[in-house]
Computed example of a mutant assay.
Amino acid sequence: MNVNAALYKPIGLGVSVLGGLAANAAFRKIWRATSGDDKAPEPTDPSQTWRTVLIGAAAQGAVFGLVKAAVDRAGATGYKKMTGHWPDDRAEEKAG
């Protein structure tokens, strides 16, 4: 592990935690606006349909994936702006 990757590790962890919180808040807001419910149905809830459970799971996965990618990318970009180096210079070398 190079120095930049080692320095970024605790920052990346903090960014990921904040990203998870942001993703959860975004998903709850989207789900509430589209379904009227405060949270997505549990897969084992017998009162829910297959359709509702699967749509909820797909939407949650999409929101979490999108927010995580955006937050991770923003964290790496911010790190580069502060230090002049990408968090993992090996990845930057591969990119050209």
Rank of each mutant, 00 (worst) to 15 (best):
residue 38 D to P: 02
residue 17 V to L: 09
residue 61 G to Q: 10
residue 74 A to F: 11
residue 73 R to G: 03
residue 47 S to W: 01
residue 3 V to D: 09
residue 33 A to C: 01
residue 14 G to N: 04
residue 42 E to R: 12
residue 15 V to P: 01
residue 65 G to P: 07
residue 17 V to C: 00
residue 96 G to S: 07
residue 48 Q to K: 15
residue 9 K to R: 11
residue 9 K to V: 04
residue 62 A to L: 13
residue 70 A to P: 01
residue 66 L to I: 15
residue 38 D to M: 09
residue 6 A to S: 13
residue 86 W to K: 01
residue 13 L to G: 02
residue 1 M to H: 11
residue 77 T to F: 10
residue 77 T to M: 13
residue 28 R to L: 12
residue 84 G to E: 03
residue 33 A to D: 08
residue 23 A to Q: 05
residue 24 N to M: 09
residue 95 A to S: 08
residue 88 D to C: 05
residue 39 K to Q: 06
residue 17 V to D: 02
residue 29 K to S: 13
residue 91 A to C: 08
residue 18 L to I: 06
residue 86 W to M: 04
residue 23 A to D: 02
residue 26 A to F: 07
residue 34 T to H: 08
residue 4 N to M: 13
residue 87 P to H: 01
residue 79 Y to R: 04
residue 68 K to N: 15
residue 22 A to P: 00
residue 15 V to E: 00
residue 15 V to A: 14
residue 21 L to K: 02
residue 38 D to N: 12
residue 2 N to A: 04
residue 37 D to Q: 14
residue 60 Q to T: 10
residue 88 D to N: 11
residue 90 R to D: 07
residue 91 A to I: 15
residue 96 G to Q: 12
residue 42 E to L: 01
residue 16 S to I: 00
residue 10 P to S: 10
residue 38 D to W: 12
residue 22 A to R: 00
residue 79 Y to A: 08
residue 78 G to S: 00
residue 29 K to C: 13
residue 21 L to I: 13
residue 7 L to E: 07
residue 64 F to E: 05
residue 69 A to V: 04
residue 24 N to K: 09
residue 95 A to N: 00
